[in-house]
Amino acid sequence: MKVLLTMTVCALLGLLAYGISLQQQQSVKPLAVQPPPSFPEFNLDNDYDPPVKQQFIERLDYIGLIRNTGGNPAQLAWAYGQLCRLFHAYQQMDEARDCYLNAIHLDPTEEEWSYLLAHVYLTTGFNDLAIDYFSRALANNQSIQTQYWLAHAHQVNQDHDMAEAQYMELLSYEPDHAMSLYGLAKIKQQNNDFKAAIKLLNKVLKTQPQAHQVNYLQGQLYRKIGDIEKSRTLLSSIADDRFAKVSISLYDPYMQHVSDLRISAQSQARMGRKAVAQKNYQEAIRYFKNAVAANETRTDTRYNLAMAWFLSGQLQLAQEQLTAVLKLDAEHEKAIQLQNRIQKRLNAK
């Protein structure tokens, strides 16, 4: 009797445990019967820039609308996806992860959510899960960028054979795919085949001569093959300025969509500073204008806009912006200095 009782309790516990265990593993394998999606806990922060807050409100309202009007799971998944991208854009990775998982449960056929979730996993160090979700995205829709990221995730996971196979397949469709050539070069480097790596990087440089990481890797490889002079020349060109760096460009519409959502003053100002470092003043002005629109009370953002006007030679507009800065903060040191510089230049004319 005692044994039977123990067995029964164990069986119940086991069944319970199995159920919970399956639920806990929902991030790995989708269930045949989807659990009801829970709404991610989210506290709308009053300190957000007004346009950012508005973005969140709109997306939360949209989800509410779909729910209240009895929308189907695919519609609800889509609504969630819009919110997930916003979490992702503002680097709230925990929320983004849970949100994407919800969207995927509701609509496992939409590759975008799997693709973006894989990116979240990749940036938070869960490479196995990144590989899993890039694979799912690829199964739903064959695309060059998904295949590249899958190869990259394998490489990060130290599975160089899988990565190489993926890169090679990708290059058979698109022989100049720069990131794949770079990825392959890294594998060759790891295998001590330095000359082959240099050859691959030379191909990349044909289309992307400014790419910072290519020049750095070339510099290291030339040292390894004993061409010290070439190595020093390449490495001495590596500026210690993160905004001045140029990455290998990669066509990635889904991630671009995420980045484009960043409209806060901070993120627009960052883009503006990067554009200034690359001497692209017109683009910088566009970003700084956006930043000022996102939060009109930030003196540093306005000062940056003034500086961008100044650097592009539009002194009148720079002065107007500096006047606005000094209205907000009469002792803004950098603004006063820039104003004096402009005045000197105008006087010299």
């Binding site: 922060d45 300190d47 957000y48 820039d49 950012v52 854009a89 503002y90 680097q91 960043r262 806060s264 003053a265 901070q266 993120s267 996102a294 939060n295 930030r298």
Partner: peptide, 8 residues
């Protein structure tokens, strides 16, 4: 300084 969403 402010974060990506604009909070201090």
């Amino acid at each position: 300084c402010f974060n990506e969403t604009g909070a201090l």
